[in-house]
Amino acid sequence: MALRKIEFSKIDRPESVSAGSAPILQWLDIASLVVDESYQRDLKPQNWKAIRKIAANFKWSMFSPVFVSPVEGGKYAIIDGQHRSHAAAICGFEQVPCQIVPMAQHEQAAAFAAVNGVVTAVTYHQLLKAALAAGEQWAVNAKEIANAGGCRLMTHNGSSLTKKPGEIFGVKGFLAVVNARPRGPLIAALKMLMATEGYNDNREIWENGVLMPLLMALTERPAALANPAFSGALAGFDIWQMIDDDHVQRRARQRIGEKYPPKSETWRAGVLEWLDKAFPARMALPASAKMSRQETLAHIGKIGSGA
């Protein structure tokens, strides 16, 4: 366990601090909590979706105190935490822990803006790291797939100079591939990339924008991946030329005002096009079927061309 102290330099301390009233921590009845609609947000469908999610996974260990301020009538206006409060009520709880700070209404509105406007975003790397420490299945599964493919799913970001082939920094994109593709073909695709020259020695291949369309395409053709000649064919595939050609087509379409699909879609389609040319599908024929050599070649040609 790595434990870090709260450390700071004296130079970081403001010249003067006016902290206002000290907060009081107390359990309050949910029935005594109110929402001041003059500054609080409305609850739209997406807010109710978030509330239902909190309720479905409700744990006090994940419940931070609701930030409130006393108002007339013995009530308390919620500054921050109305989603949590609604979720607790749905779960049947009558009280929630609260941080109570006496404030005038204009101070409440300012506090609401400060709490909800100055937020430190949590990155996917940080979420993955926390989920792995908690043993959450989605994180463990993604890490196991990466490891089985001879790769590493990274829990922190790195500079382009320090990144190495096989290190997967695009956590969000990789999770999308894990959710969309079977485990076996995905592991096979990662192993193939790690075994192929031009892919196992080029960190640019492992950038999120390139790697994810490549994985999405490779995992759509498991039969090709299983072909003994696949690694050699992949080494000869000029993915950068495909990307350059796509860029030219994209610019040409954009110049005339036409929409062009996202790079993730067109690059995936480009890899699939190469795959289907390099390893055309072969349809098994019934044992009783008798075809001439020319008929057989013509049949295979139609399959390979998509006819």
Rank of each mutant, 00 (worst) to 15 (best):
V71Y: 04
D29G: 06
V68C: 07
V66T: 12
P45D: 11
P70S: 02
F67D: 10
Y76S: 01
F63V: 09
I54L: 14
I51R: 02
Q40M: 03
R41T: 11
N57C: 10
N57G: 11
Y76A: 04
K59V: 12
K44G: 07
V68F: 02
P45C: 06
R52K: 13
P70V: 06
F58I: 09
Q26D: 06
D42K: 12
G81C: 00
G73F: 06
K49I: 08
S61D: 15
L25P: 00
Q82L: 09
Q40R: 08
I90N: 01
L43V: 13
V66A: 05
Q95G: 02
L25R: 12
H83D: 03
S38D: 14
L43F: 15
G81S: 05
L43I: 12
V66R: 05
K59L: 12
A88P: 02
A31T: 13
E37S: 13
A50Q: 14
I51V: 13
V68M: 06
L43M: 15
S38V: 08
K49Q: 14
I30M: 08
Y39T: 06
D36A: 05
V34L: 02
D36W: 07
R52C: 10
V96M: 03
I51A: 04
L33K: 04
D29H: 07
F58T: 08
F58S: 11
L28A: 04
N57S: 15
A56C: 08
K44A: 09
E72P: 04
V66K: 00
S32I: 02
R84E: 02
A77Q: 01
A56T: 09
I30H: 05
L33F: 04
N57V: 08
P97T: 00
V34P: 01
S69I: 03
S32E: 13
K53S: 15
A56N: 12
A87K: 01
K49Y: 11
I24K: 14
S32T: 15
G92K: 01
Q95L: 02
K49M: 10
A89D: 07
K75T: 07
L25Q: 14
A50K: 10
K59T: 15
I90T: 00
V34E: 10
K44P: 00
G92S: 01
W48S: 07
M62C: 10
R52G: 14
K75N: 15
R84A: 04
A31P: 04
L28P: 05
W48M: 09
W48D: 06
F93C: 00
G81H: 05
K49P: 00
L25H: 14
H83E: 04
D42Q: 14
L43H: 11
W60M: 13
N57T: 15
I78C: 03
D42R: 12
C91E: 10
S38R: 15
Y76K: 03
V35E: 12
I78R: 02
M62W: 11
F67I: 10
A31E: 14
Y39R: 08
M62D: 15
A50S: 13
E37H: 10
